[in-house]
Nucleic acid binder design. Sequence first.
DNA 1: CTGTCTATCTATAAATC
DNA 2: TGATTTATAGATAGACA
Lengths: 231, 231
Amino acid sequence: MTRKKVKLAFIVNDAARKATYKKRKKGLMKKVDELTTLCGIEACAIVYSPYDSQPEVWPSPWGVQKALAKFRTMPELEQSKKMVNQETFLKQRILKAKEQVKKQNKDNREKEMTLLMLQCLSAGKLLHDNLTMVDLNDLAWLIDQNLKDVDRRLETMNKNSHMTPSQAQMIAPVAKNEYMTPVDHGHGFDMNVDTMQKQWFMDLINNNGDETMPFGDVNLQNGFCPNPLLP
Amino acid sequence: MTRKKVKLAFIVNDAARKATYKKRKKGLMKKVDELTTLCGIEACAIVYSPYDSQPEVWPSPWGVQKALAKFRTMPELEQSKKMVNQETFLKQRILKAKEQVKKQNKDNREKEMTLLMLQCLSAGKLLHDNLTMVDLNDLAWLIDQNLKDVDRRLETMNKNSHMTPSQAQMIAPVAKNEYMTPVDHGHGFDMNVDTMQKQWFMDLINNNGDETMPFGDVNLQNGFCPNPLLP
DNA sequence: CTGTCTATCTATAAATC
DNA sequence: TGATTTATAGATAGACA
């Protein structure tokens, strides 16, 4: 039942490797078949393995010979060109993979920070003794993002509902403009950048985490709690 | 969004064909790559198309040359053997496809019969004027299957529950052994085969379908209903 | 070894930018 | 032309017969 994503590496287990070989060779053959049929082109595949005494070819030895003949008509220079193309392709794939890893890490980071923020809200304090400055900076950024979101919603409410601005403010009193300034994120931690705009955050990390939270006005006024997960 | 299952045939639309070609060539290349990596073998693919001035090869022209050299070392006889193998392979695929069609038809038939049976239960009568003898035979088989299932459940109950056999019988009184005899299914309709064992069914189709159903004991004692779908 | 089954993972048709 | 997105078709790992 395909427990996990198969990692692209040599399969050590002999039986599993052979089983995979059989299945995938069949699948590959089918793909070649489909490509030629769907697109009306010529193609062939050659597989040489210890499981078969001879190379296995598709769609037929004749087809292979034909394709090969064409390939051989290529001047050496052209063949080299193709080779370079192949190399370029691999480089592109590597680059793309790296980009994906980068994006994945970014997403993971954001999720971590969301979790951390929620834990902080639950505990009523920041457990910053275990956090690095980078963590705190990222957390600050995330919270700012959330605050901006709250602010946007507030504006929408003020414009579209029958609620007065002051009533709306009472629902989310922390969403004050002084906290809305964009944070210069992604360039490492810098205590000197935007410090004044993140006053609430600075206040927080300069104390010991067991006093009023920036969100205290909402429902955690006296937020300290012996059980870190139960407000 | 892959609206439909792509039928395996030449794509007439030029743009679509080219797009498919690009995608699938890439996919094929990836597959070759994976096969070689996972199974530690040598393989290559050659694609010759009007979209590229030269044949496209994987993993590299060198690899292709290597694989080809091996192929060329095969005696003509062996090459022919391989060719025959290819033909055999295609025949096997055709055979398999036919078997799948057959199985599919069988499944469809069974579903049709299930639906029919339920409709009959709902209507409280068999609308047999619109049914062929083959239909009725299949329906009889299906009902027998269901009765066998009921019987099996009854036995389980008698063995494992605190219920007495008679109590169990009251729940599903139709599951009497006289109806449990296996039906010789799949050889066409034959009024002379198993007729006695399917007495209830014969009774049913020899009348006009507006009287007691074989399942009448359960909850359709006086099953006729003006609305065919509402008991 | 070959086929089957099922839960997942992967490929990709179409639409859109 | 190529990249991205989304929903579906297809491939296949692992277990079993």
